[in-house]
């Protein structure tokens, strides 16, 4: 299955929708709505409200995150916004500002 990759020099200003995995190494602004997995890598910057099944964040996310299954904040990530997911993992070293709602 072809993976969707947003490269490190790419800037997307708008809306991303779809039903396949997404890897963000660049910048995404606007809104992201997926039914699969999102990985925000070290160089990735997401300034958007994110709606997805699962998300793993190594980079920066500014905006509300809604994951229907799981949200994982890895060490050295920076997240500003509210997280709503049944399972939330925050690793040691992660930076997070916002509220967490695990009621699903």
């Amino acid at each position: 299955m072809a993976n969707t990759v947003i490269g490190s020099t790419i800037v997307i200003d708008g809306e991303i929708t779809g039903d396949e995995d997404l890897v963000v190494r660049g910048t995404v602004k606007g809104r992201v709505s997926l039914r699969e997995h999102i990985t925000v890598e070290d160089s990735g910057v997401v300034e958007a409200n994110v709606d997805t099944a699962t998300i793993t964040i190594f980079g920066r996310v500014t905006g509300d995150v809604h994951a229907t299954e799981r949200a994982e904040l890895k060490s050295n990530c920076r997240v500003v916004g509210d997280i709503r997911a049944p399972r939330v993992l925050i690793a040691d070293g992660a930076s997070f500002k916002g509220s967490v709602d695990m009621d699903g």
Binding site: T9, I10, I12, D13, G14, G26
Partner: peptide, 10 residues
């Protein structure tokens, strides 16, 4: 499976 509506630059 991806659709982007907006501006893409890079």
């Amino acid at each position: 499976g991806i659709r982007i509506s907006g501006r893409v630059s890079g």
